[in-house]
């Protein structure tokens, strides 16, 4: 008789209990209306599931993910829009003003002009004089505070290179292979993205 009793206990242990994720979904209010009542009925007669819910409650409190302080949209995200070649922007960043400080002689084409939120961006792609077959990007950002802004060049799923803007907004990437890149300019509260940058 004792062995039969043990076997029944082993075979039937928690047989009517909802699985732990269902209990968790119940606790988080994620179950549909029809699923809630059977769980509530079960909890009324099952001290083990009740204890597991209590454990979950304590665990959630102890490991509470506080997302404070957060102001939600702290960072302004701008996708840069390409302006027509030689076009004037609202702050007058045209080819004359916007030519990067380090512009090299013999530039193959005029600068690429972008507008992104409050910022204007000029990019000039040239041959790299020190590495034949490679390219240089000379960039200039105006219209935003450029202190501690990082310019990053991405390709595929990796960062190719990154530099910090100087105090007037210039940056340079050298030794680049031709291809399509994404350029990001990341500051403390602003992020500018230049997508599909073909050099």
């Amino acid at each position: 008789m004792a062995q039969m009793e043990d076997s029944l206990k082993a075979a039937l242990y928690r047989i009517t209990c909802p699985d732990s994720a269902t209990l968790g979904n119940y606790h988080l209010g994620l179950l549909g209306e029809t699923a809630v009542q059977p769980i509530a009925n079960h909890l009324a007669v099952c001290p083990l599931c009740t204890r597991e819910i209590e454990q979950l409650e304590v665990f959630l409190l102890e490991t509470a993910v506080s997302l404070q302080p957060s102001t939600g949209e702290r960072i302004r995200v701008w996708i840069a829009k390409r302006l027509p070649s030689g076009g004037q922007t609202r702050q007058g960043l045209g080819p004359a003003v916007g030519t990067p400080a380090f512009a090299l002689r013999g530039s193959s084409s005029g600068p690429l002009m972008y507008e992104a939120g409050d910022a204007q961006l000029s990019l000039e792609v040239q041959d790299d004089p020190e590495q034949p077959g490679r390219k240089v990007i000379l960039g200039l950002v105006l219209g935003i505070a450029t202190e501690a802004v990082e310019a990053k060049l991405l390709q595929g799923d990796g960062v190719v290179t990154a530099v910090t803007l100087d105090e007037i907004g210039n940056f340079t990437f050298t030794g680049l292979e031709t291809g399509t890149y994404e350029l990001t300019l990341s500051g403390a509260d602003v992020e500018i993205h230049v997508q599909d940058l073909l050099i």
Binding site: S20, A21, G24, L28, E52, L56, F59, L67
Partner: peptide
Amino acid sequence: LLRYLQMCTHAVMVD
């Protein structure tokens, strides 16, 4: 979402 991740962490341990 992170709260759900917490719940799932608890659930696998209870299982």
